[in-house]
Computed example of a mutant assay.
Amino acid sequence: MILRAWQSFLSRFRAPVPPVDDALWRQAVARVPLARALDAPRLHYLRQLSALFLHTKRFHALGGAELDAFWMLVIAMQASLPALPRGPKAFKGWTNVLVYPGEFNVKRSHHDARDGVVTERDDTLIGEAWDRGPMVLSLSDVKLDVEGPWDGFNVVVHEMAHKLDMLAAPANGVPPLLPGMNRREWIATMQGAFDALVKQVERGRHTAIDPYAAEAPEEFFAVTSELHFSQPALLREAAPKVAKLLASFYGPSPAG
């Protein structure tokens, strides 16, 4: 089924999708434990999706970032991991990947409808995903995630989770689900776990899940997606129902 869907998708391109160079692929797999831990069929499909990602996305090195073919492939691989169950459709709706050397600043404006006051602030970020816009990444944090793959953090997975969330509507923590998954169950489970985390954070309690997940339901989905891929045991202990849902949504975690 996956092979037929892949062939059907590739038939839409007038020019074939260039394959990933063998030597470069071996080098990347050796350096990226999340990929190395996959079984042979999923690793083979990851290579195909990574090639498609590189073919359809435009990389832009900003602020002096040194971005070569190896690191573009590493980003493509980690963005393709959450896409494995749904294939090329996961990459719809956006084109550009902006890569800074490290943290970057984003200016935010907020309009208070009650009093009409507009306030501005600068946020320092390591990653961001815009609806119908680019994925923005800190290269230094991508490198940290490669060196520490099982610590519960992965900026590319986090931003790709947002992109999946945005496939049908603005991000709200309820991405388009796979056939057979129950939308009501997803909403009830994720919202219940999010509400419980918010209460813990408001009471000043220590939380196993990063408190940033309490910012909004869409951030809860993205943060727990990071845990699914890089620290699933912690997620199973902290939110077992969420862990089970994400295993159905993404497939088995490379971390076991």
Rank of each mutant, 00 (worst) to 15 (best):
T224G: 02
L137M: 07
K92V: 01
S248N: 07
I2C: 07
P252L: 05
D21S: 11
Y250I: 03
S140H: 14
D131I: 04
I126Q: 08
A214N: 07
R114H: 10
T224M: 05
R184L: 11
E218S: 10
S11N: 10
L235I: 04
L139W: 01
T95Q: 14
V156P: 03
R36K: 11
K199S: 09
T95K: 15
A213Q: 03
L177I: 07
R184M: 09
L137Q: 02
L98S: 04
A171T: 05
L245H: 10
M181S: 11
Y45F: 13
V99G: 02
G63D: 08
F70L: 15
E219T: 05
E237N: 07
D210E: 12
A15C: 05
A213D: 01
Q231M: 10
F59V: 01
G127R: 05
R184F: 10
E215M: 10
W71G: 02
P18C: 03
F249Y: 15
L197G: 03
D165H: 13
M72P: 02
L139S: 08
P134M: 09
V106E: 13
A214T: 04
D115N: 15
A90F: 01
M135H: 04
A208G: 12
P240I: 01
V117S: 12
R121M: 10
T56A: 10
H228R: 02
P252F: 04
P134N: 10
I2L: 14
L67M: 08
W71I: 00
F91D: 02
R86P: 00
P179D: 11
D68N: 15
P176G: 12
R108D: 09
K241G: 06
A214V: 01
G204A: 06
R86H: 08
Q78N: 14
P175H: 08
L10G: 04
N154P: 01
N172M: 06
W94N: 05
H162I: 11
H111G: 08
L246G: 00
